[in-house]
Write a protein that binds this DNA or RNA. Structure first.
Lengths: 237, 237
DNA sequence: AAAATACAATATGTATACAATAAAAATTTT
DNA sequence: AAAATTTTTATTGTATACATATTGTATTTT
């Protein structure tokens, strides 16, 4: 952690973000001002400013006179997420194909390589973080300040949902990760070709894959018990 | 301004928001910490926290070591706005029709009455603020945390664009305001009937009306000069 | 005189002390 | 002993003093 000694505030901001995205800090858990101030060698004043910024971006929730906590994930989270994500992300991808600058495309390719590397190494944290970065870049490419706030909010929970549901336990899950990586490659190509329709379609495909992955996780082994048991699948409706 | 004497921070937050929405504070203008601290009888510490919160919501922009300023409106603002608004607002309206609680519908009706009253009185500020409140309520009705960030960001500039372009100078503009009010009534009805398709269609209609209004403003009098002059309309493409 | 440097003034960022509020513990009352 | 009240402790919020960075002005150098 040889970051600039003067920029402790920015360091804390980045570390907290990463810890939230990778579920090192659990949704709903409290943030202790005094303890964090100690940990990052910062006084409470700049620390509280970081809290407010993170709150504005959706990482944490602030409660008057009662401290900050990591943004919670409720039972409606998945439903709300998959309701909004395809639309927002479809729009972002379409605009990314329209507006991407070549430097951004280079950045996207480099990030995809890091993502693949994390896949090989089997590092869940890095995979989630580079995947997050990959999508953030597409957001920047789209270059529309009105879409970005929701898109970034989606990416936070996308990472956290991914950390929860993408723990390759069986063959099918591992294959899905490979498929996701292939989709990234296809996304890069569509953007490079300025093929808006293809980009928008790939966004949809990407979410469908996510949804399938989650269903695999929620319904793991198919116990094959014929009658009288409540189905987990039904419980999600 | 008989707000709670202890809650000066919240008062400042609300006042700044209103002043930004109504263009009392111009886009791009600086916020002086010392002066505002004086004005609201607050020390710089809580003041800066409010800045960061407003920045998170898109009202102001923070620049390191260089103070805060009101979020700017650039030449691409209108284009970006009308690109994103119909989609986001269409989705919000559809969900509002699906999920609205009856207390929220009552709130919406009450706000619409205040909006109409402001129209009659000819108060541009109140019209913009109650229109803003009207749409905020539809956002709450939609009840999807992933759509809200972009929706709220849109509403900020919707209010500011409205303050710029809805200054009834001629008959056509005044008629458009009446039409907007009628659309609000229709929106309330669609939501109350849980007619999602109608609600989504009204969202589209509402933006088309806005776009027409802006064209009226940008091309005011039709000077009728035949040749050799550059068209303002072309300049916007 | 123009450019570059050094200095002064202003504004922003951080630390700390104190005040207000909420939570926990101990005491009193029933 | 259970409930209610008071007291204590911990945590959050605010003010102020100080440190650092930026901007504008004056001085020096070419």
């Amino acid at each position: 952690m040889k970051e600039d000694a003067r920029n402790r505030k920015g360091v804390m901001y980045e570390i907290l973000k990463k810890e939230i995205l990778t579920l090192v800090r659990r949704p709903g858990s409290d943030l202790d001002e005094t303890q964090l101030a100690e940990e990052f060698s910062l006084s409470r004043t700049p620390l509280r400013e970081v809290f407010r910024q993170l709150a504005g971006e959706g990482y944490v929730e602030l409660r008057e006179n009662r401290g900050a906590r990591i943004s919670d994930m409720s039972h409606t989270t998945l439903r709300d997420f998959f309701l909004a994500a395809p639309m927002i992300y479809g729009a972002v991808m379409r605009l990314a194909a329209r507006n991407a600058k070549s430097a951004q495309i280079d950045d996207l390719k480099a990030t995809q390589e890091l993502f693949k590397d994390a896949l090989h190494r089997g590092s869940n944290e890095d995979r989630a973080l580079f995947n997050n970065r990959f999508h953030e870049i597409t957001g920047d490419m789209a270059d529309n300040i009105y879409l970005l706030p929701s898109f970034k909010r989606l990416l936070i929970d996308h990472a956290r949902i991914g950390m929860t549901f993408y723990q390759p336990q069986d063959n099918q899950m591992a294959e899905n990760l490979t498929a996701a990586s292939a989709q990234h490659d296809a996304i890069i190509m569509a953007i490079e070709k300025r093929d808006e329709a293809a980009a928008a379609q790939l966004a949809t495909d990407h979410w469908n894959l996510s949804r399938n992955q989650i269903e695999l996780f929620v319904m793991p082994s198919q116990l094959d018990i014929p009658l009288g048991t409540s189905s987990i699948k039904a419980g999600r409706g």
